[in-house]
C-alpha cells in the first residue's frame, strides 16, 4: 500500500509531509526520552525483523497464486509502544523508499502517516481498549485481530482520502474507498491472525518481552477467531454502508470538483493534431540524446573509471 508520487498532487504531498514531519518530530522527542541508548539497537533489530518478516509470505487460498505477508505496525506497537513503533516503521518506510524504491519520495509524508503513525497509534489504542488490564486468551486474540483490521482499513481509507483530495486519478472516491476497504479488510484479517499467532508464540516463549500477559500457553482459539471475525465484519460493513451514501459527502464533492478541474486542464493540454510533429521531434530528440549518452558512457566505461572500492 505504499503510495507512489504519481497519484498525489503537490499540495497534498507537501501538506502531508509537513504533518508527518511535525508528528514524527514529537514522537522522536518522546522516544528519545523513553528509550535509552541500550534499547536503540533493539529498535534497529526490530526494524530489520519487520523487513525479514515481510519476506515470510503465506500462500493464500484465494485468489489463486496470491500470497500475503505481515505488515507489522500493530505487532510492534503492542511490543514497543506506539511512539517507538512509529519511529521503527518510519525507518522501515524510508529504507523501502531509498533502497528498494517502494513508495515515492514525495509521498513519504503520506506513507509515514498511513503506514507508520496511524496504524501504530490506532492499533495500540484498540488493542488495549479491548484487551483491558487483565488480559485473557480470548481478549488477546480478539484485541489483536480487531486492532489489525481497524488499523489496516484506516490506512486504506487514508490512502483513498489523500488520493481523492489530490484529484489526479479519475476513479470516484466512494468506489476507490469501497475497493480499498474491501481488499484491506481481507488483508487486515490475515494481518490480525498472523499478529495474534505471533503474540501467542511470544507470550509462550518470551513472555518477559510484554507486560501484563496472562499465564499459561495461549493458543489461537477457533471460537475466539470466529466471534472476532464476525464482530469485525459487522462493524466494517456498517461503517462502509454509512460512507457509501447516495448523496455525495464533502470529500466526494471536493473530488468531483478537483476531477473536473484536472480533466479540464488535461483537455486543454492534450497534444492535438496540430502539434503532432512537435511531440515526434521531442521524443526523437530525447531518444537520440539517450543513445548519445549511452555511447559516451560505453566509451568511458572501458577506461576503468567504475572500479568498486572497498567500503
Amino acid at each position: 500500500m505504499h503510495m507512489p508520487n504519481e497519484i498525489l498532487s503537490l499540495p497534498v504531498a507537501g501538506g502531508s509531509f509537513a504533518i508527518a514531519a511535525v508528528g514524527l518530530g514529537t514522537l522522536c522527542r518522546v522516544a528519545s526520552r523513553t528509550i535509552s541508548s541500550e534499547k536503540a539497537s533493539l529498535m534497529g533489530i526490530f526494524g530489520a525483523f519487520i523487513f525479514a518478516a515481510q519476506m515470510l509470505n503465506l500462500p493464500l487460498p484465494f485468489p489463486p497464486g496470491a500470497s500475503g505477508h505481515l505488515t507489522g505496525a500493530v505487532l510492534l506497537a503492542i511490543v514497543l509502544g506506539p511512539a517507538a513503533a512509529s519511529v521503527v516503521m518510519t525507518s522501515v518506510i524510508i529504507i523501502q523508499c531509498l533502497v528498494f524504491q517502494d513508495g515515492g519520495l514525495l509521498a513519504l509524508g503520506c506513507n509515514i502517516i498511513n503506514l507508520a503513525i496511524v496504524p501504530s497509534f490506532a492499533g495500540h489504542t484498540i488493542y488495549h481498549l479491548i484487551a483491558g488490564a487483565r488480559k485473557t486468551k480470548f481478549r488477546i486474540y480478539a484485541a489483536s485481530i480487531i486492532a489489525c483490521i481497524a488499523a489496516t482499513i484506516l490506512s486504506a481509507a487514508l490512502v483513498s482520502i489523500e488520493t481523492a483530495i489530490s484529484g489526479v486519478i479519475a476513479v470516484p472516491f466512494v468506489t476507490f474507498l469501497a475497493f480499498m476497504s474491501g481488499v484491506h479488510f481481507v488483508i487486515g484479517i490475515f494481518e490480525g491472525v498472523i499478529t495474534a499467532s505471533v503474540l501467542a508464540y511470544i507470550y509462550r516463549a518470551r513472555g518477559d518481552l510484554i507486560n501484563g500477559v496472562a499465564g499459561g500457553s495461549p493458543r489461537l482459539s477457533k471460537a475466539a477467531f470466529i466471534v472476532t471475525l464476525a464482530g469485525a465484519t459487522i462493524i466494517i460493513a456498517v461503517s462502509i454502508s454509512l460512507v457509501a451514501s447516495a448523496k455525495p459527502d464533502g470529500l466526494e464533492w471536493s473530488l468531483q470538483q478537483s476531477t473536473a478541474v484536472s480533466s479540464e486542464s488535461i483537455e486543454t493540454s492534450t497534444p492535438g493534431p496540430a502539434n503532432g510533429w512537435t511531440s515526434l521531434a521531442a521524443v526523437a530528440g530525447s531518444a537520440l540524446t539517450m543513445i548519445v549518452i549511452w555511447l559516451v558512457s560505453k566509451i568511458f566505461a572501458n577506461r576503468g573509471g567504475g572500479k568498486c572500492i572497498t567500503p
Binding site: A48, F49, L56, L58, I194, Y201, I202, A205, L209
Partner: peptide, 13 residues
Amino acid sequence: SAAMIASLFATST
C-alpha cells in the same frame, strides 16, 4: 508461517 515469524522475532531479540 506464524511460528517462523515468531521464531525470527525471538532470535532477533
